[in-house]
Design a protein around this nucleic acid. Sequence first.
DNA 1: CGCTGACCGTTTGGACCCGAACGATTTGGG
DNA 2: CCCAAATCGTTCGGGTCCAAACGGTCAGCG
Lengths: 181, 181
Amino acid sequence: MTRSTSGHYSRTAAQSPAGGHHTLAETESAVSERLANLELDMGSMAAVQNVYRAANAFRNHLESTVLAPHELTWTGWVVLWVVWIWGDIETRHAATEAGISKGTLTGVVGTLEGRGFLTRRTHPDDARRVLLALTAKGKRLMSQVFPEFNREEARLMSALSTDEVATLTQGLRKAVASLDD
Amino acid sequence: MTRSTSGHYSRTAAQSPAGGHHTLAETESAVSERLANLELDMGSMAAVQNVYRAANAFRNHLESTVLAPHELTWTGWVVLWVVWIWGDIETRHAATEAGISKGTLTGVVGTLEGRGFLTRRTHPDDARRVLLALTAKGKRLMSQVFPEFNREEARLMSALSTDEVATLTQGLRKAVASLDD
DNA sequence: CGCTGACCGTTTGGACCCGAACGATTTGGG
DNA sequence: CCCAAATCGTTCGGGTCCAAACGGTCAGCG
């Protein structure tokens, strides 16, 4: 699975054919023409578009270069990573850490369980709860893949200086934090 | 549809229950412990996580506050926006502009067509191609929703100064551009 | 002890996401 | 004129994503 990217808002985009892809400058121009009467916050529009575009680019790149060869999807990886970091973990907590809904977690865990990477078992004290743990196979996979994954993360950010990366992270945290208020 | 967020890599996350969500600092600590022997690029890891987290937060916020009340999903909105900006457009170009695969575009267009927002017709010169256009209903919808959408985009970025927003956008463009090379 | 409300994970229905394969159409060369 | 290669959008199979509803379990109150 290879996700691609160049779209403004969505997750992926095919390689741009001739005449098929407009630059952001062209896009902003077209928007200004269409809505000449309105006051637009072009700065925020560009920021939101670029955040989404970058997220897709990163996910696509990491999936195609590191994860897909190991039969992993982005979200499968995230869930494995959460269980790996925190050890035996309840599904409701894993969903929160992984940033997905409980229903989605059930499905993703089913996929990972089917591939032999982790197991689920009923909580000893509370039959409502389910505990997740990595299998031996899952642990070997994480030890092998995480360094590769982090190297590619470093490559993704290599065009920016250390200060620029830190500033980027800070700005994003600030924007997200203001949503949680 | 209300997507939520606090996850590190994934698109959404439920509101964090007690003990269910660890801070990024706690997460980085746990990762350092687990991989004490390896050299990790924590700065890049944090950046990638925060980009993805912010993208999810923005998508979820804009879907729940602006789009869902109009029976729109994030990607449905993106496709309508692309057709609105560029007028009659071929499906392959719309997919590229919207940043989704051709197969996904077929499905999304089916949904939007079913809701009466746009139409498809065969290209007059080439029967392989399909042209998309907004209906009158779709045009009214865009004129109504876009200002709301842009206002919410502005709110999303309101915790940052104009310069910080511009710096953020620049850094993201830089990282993504280095991928396209 | 029994009942009610809350919590948990799963299921349901609908939407999206991809790459690969397919059938229809077009193009260009022999 | 015919055929092979390329292009297009759709279909297929599998994965993900959500909210809401459901059945099972637990906690606490009367």
